[in-house]
Simulated scan of single mutants.
Amino acid sequence: MPVYTTNHAPSVLKTHSWRTAQNSASYLLPHIKPSMKILDIGCGPGSITVDFASLIPSGHVTGIEYVPDPLNDARELATSRGISNIDFQVGDIHSLDFADESFDIVHVHQVLQHIRDPVKALQEMKRVAKPGGIVAVRESASMTWYPENKAITSWLDLTMKMGKANGGNPHPGRYIHVWAREAGFALDKIQRSAGSWCFSSPAEREYWGGSMAGRMESSGFAEGAVRDGFAGWEELGGIARGWREWVGEEEGWFGLLHGEILCWK
Rank of each mutant, 00 (worst) to 15 (best):
G220M: 03
N169M: 05
R192D: 01
S201P: 10
A129M: 10
H94G: 00
Y175N: 12
A203L: 13
P170R: 03
G132D: 11
I93C: 14
V135C: 04
M143W: 11
S140E: 09
A222G: 08
S193D: 03
G184E: 07
K150A: 15
I152E: 10
Y175L: 07
Q110D: 10
V108I: 13
F88I: 00
D188Y: 01
P118N: 01
Y207R: 04
K130I: 14
G168D: 00
V128T: 10
E101A: 02
M143I: 05
N149P: 13
L156T: 10
V135R: 00
I105Y: 14
Q191F: 03
A180H: 07
E101H: 06
I105M: 02
A151H: 11
F103S: 10
S142W: 13
I83Q: 10
S142N: 08
L112P: 08
L158Y: 10
I134D: 00
W145C: 06
P170W: 08
A183M: 04
T144E: 15
D97W: 01
Q89W: 15
G195E: 05
I86M: 03
D100H: 02
I115H: 00
L96C: 01
M160Y: 14
N85T: 11
P131H: 14
I152R: 13
S140A: 13
G168L: 11
A99K: 08
E101C: 06
N149K: 12
A203D: 15
G82C: 09
Q110L: 09
W197R: 02
Y146R: 15
S154V: 04
S95M: 09
F199V: 04
A180D: 06
G210V: 07
C198L: 14
